[in-house]
Design a binder for these strands. Structure first.
Length: 236
DNA sequence: CGTCTTTGACCAGCGC
DNA sequence: GCGCTGGTCAAAGACG
């Protein structure tokens, strides 16, 4: 069966394009892996440093947890802080222009006060859990002075009730507009604010780690990845 | 009408 | 005791 040359050329062109895209895809994947590695190293270095030398706003910082909001697809940087026995502190990324202190965390909160504190020009909002009448949990929400993109949320106490799954989707009052939520978290996580941060596995998967050159027989790809790795290493 | 937010007042703890 | 600061209360208003 004869194939017209024009069609054959087209097919070859598409094949070449596909091959090119595959190479780019591999290169991007490698770049992502390298960045993940670097992030992991930085995170560990920060963890070590924060244990020996406590910075100002990150007192008690043990490590960062990078989460992605499933609804807004925003990354949420959540350092888990070691505070009092029954309290925890998380950082939530929001739009700095958003002055509401609404953080979707799976619980329903009632605001009972707001105060401007001495060391932070941004007002601190006080919330009480209103999902159950006698729930003792409170939280304080204040914009981070060093980085306006983040809200500093301090939880105190433990919930004496189950989380309502429907509230996890939209727990804020209708009149309020949340720019960031962690409502996509499973209830087992939302059950306790002390465990509100989800760890992401920043380690390279076994499949990915094999692509360090040894697991891939293609020399071009290997060189490509090496040069990409070198480029990223120099770039940082 | 019930619920929630706002906001000024009040209270407690702490340092001087 | 006094002043400062953070946390809470509660009345008033907004909103659905």
């Amino acid at each position: 069966m004869d194939v017209p040359s024009s069609v054959k050329d087209k097919a070859e062109g598409v094949e070449a394009e596909l091959e090119q895209l595959q190479k780019e895809n591999a290169a991007l994947r490698l770049m992502l892996q390298v960045m993940r590695n670097k992030y992991k190293m930085l995170s560990e270095a920060y963890f070590r440093e924060s244990n020996s030398q406590v910075p100002t706003i990150c007192r008690g910082l043990t490590r960062f947890d990078l989460c992605e909001d499933q609804h807004s697809h925003k990354n949420i940087l959540i350092p888990q802080l070691q505070l009092a026995a029954n309290s925890s502190q998380v950082f939530v990324e929001t739009d700095p222009r958003d002055e509401s202190h609404i953080v979707k965390d799976g619980f329903q909160w009632r605001k009972y006060g707001q105060k401007v504190t001495k060391h932070n020009p941004f007002p601190r909002a006080y919330f009480r859990c209103s999902m159950a009448p006698g729930c003792p949990v409170k939280k304080k929400v204040q914009r981070c002075m060093e980085d306006k993109n983040f809200l500093m949320v301090t939880y105190e106490g433990q919930h004496n009730h189950e989380v309502n799954p429907s509230i996890g989707q939209s727990l804020s009052s209708p009149s309020s507009s949340a720019t960031t939520s962690i409502s996509g978290f499973p209830n087992s996580v939302l059950d306790n604010p002390l465990r509100s941060a989800i760890d992401l596995d920043l380690n390279l998967s076994s499949e990915n780690s094999s692509s360090n050159g040894n697991g891939n027989g293609n020399d071009d790809d290997y060189n490509n990845k090496r040069s990409m790795e070198d480029h990223i290493a120099v770039g940082t």
